[in-house]
Amino acid sequence: MSMKSLLNAVVIFFSATLGLTLIWAILELPVSNHIHLSEQVLIQLDASGVRHPTTAVLLNFRGFDTLLEVMVLLLALLGVLDQTKKRKPKNLSISIRLNQPYLQALLWSARVLVPMMVLVAGYLLGVGGYQPGGAFQAAAVLAAAGVLLNLSGLLPTWREPSWSLRLGFIFGLLLFLLITAMTLFLSPGLLLQYPITLAGIFILIIEAGLTLSLGLILAGFFLLLSDEVNNKKADE
């Protein structure tokens, strides 16, 4: 017991020291030989195909990071699928999850909110080119709509995904990958180098595809995990 509290003390001491050193370092931060990347982003913005700097960075200047990052999401989904596919599915009626008044409120709000959320997602996707918004935010709103539908009992939870659902999960990722591969065949032929005239349309296609697939994946996290019931008896 004392061993454990000693360990706690050591960890807390180290963390506190680290925290204070970090804050000291931040306050002492030199700014002398600092590169101002934000200026370069603005200079090159015209060549990026979009007018919103963050979207330009996300899908053009550092689009490679984004390509790898959507693969991280897919990996998490693969892990979730691997962990949920072995369970015995049990249909949990909605009334167990929620009390009656809540349920009514949810049903009502789902009917009103979900169409609005889909509209908002479309709006966010559409404006991403020139103001805050874009695929990730739109996908998150779509996923939230999915969660709400599921909670109000209008959308069943997902089990082992069918062929078409799997295609939906990776559709946007595949599209992104194929456009990336296509850039190698267009002039000038570097990975992810969009021709200036086509950059805008490429980014829009990729964002639309990602909105769908990321929305499905994010919703999938909830819809795949949420219907389990621990009905397995202890082994004895």
Binding site: L124, G133, F136, Q137, A140, A143, A144, L218, F222
Partner: peptide
């Protein structure tokens, strides 16, 4: 936007 939808919400 992303934080509100993903961080807090999802």
């Amino acid at each position: 936007l992303a934080e509100a939808a993903i961080g807090a919400g999802l």
